[in-house]
Design a binder for these strands. Sequence first.
DNA 1: CGATTGACCGAAG
DNA 2: CCTTCGGCCAATC
Length: 122
Amino acid sequence: MESDKSFFEKVYEVVRKIPPGRVTSYGAIAHYLGTRSSARMVGWAMNQSHTQADVPAHRVVNRKGMLSGKHHFGGPRVMQQLLESEGIRVTDDQVIDFNKVFWDPSLELANERIPISVKEIK
DNA sequence: CGATTGACCGAAG
DNA sequence: CCTTCGGCCAATC
């Protein structure tokens, strides 16, 4: 079972499954892992994500769709460029149409079917 | 070992 | 919309 894997490893695994042109939030990942309240740990996992490979951390933003961790990519421009390169519109450190590009692991991975879930963001 | 910090979230005022 | 607060847990000081 996944019990062998650390919390961080689970986070990395989910992040790797984020399809191009999509983004998710720390809370969504935390919720998917069953630790909704530990969204901060997801952030910490991303901080250590540099130790892992193929972890598109740029597809993970906070619940507002803001590029909160852009400074951790080696430059404040890197994250935005990576997202725009995937077709995601970013303006002023915020993802445009966040509700449309939002990818919720607890929904997409649970059913393993067609993506695109129009989730309402407050 | 105690206190602080952190790529967060949600509720309350 | 804003700020403040509590919670959660690991890494760092």
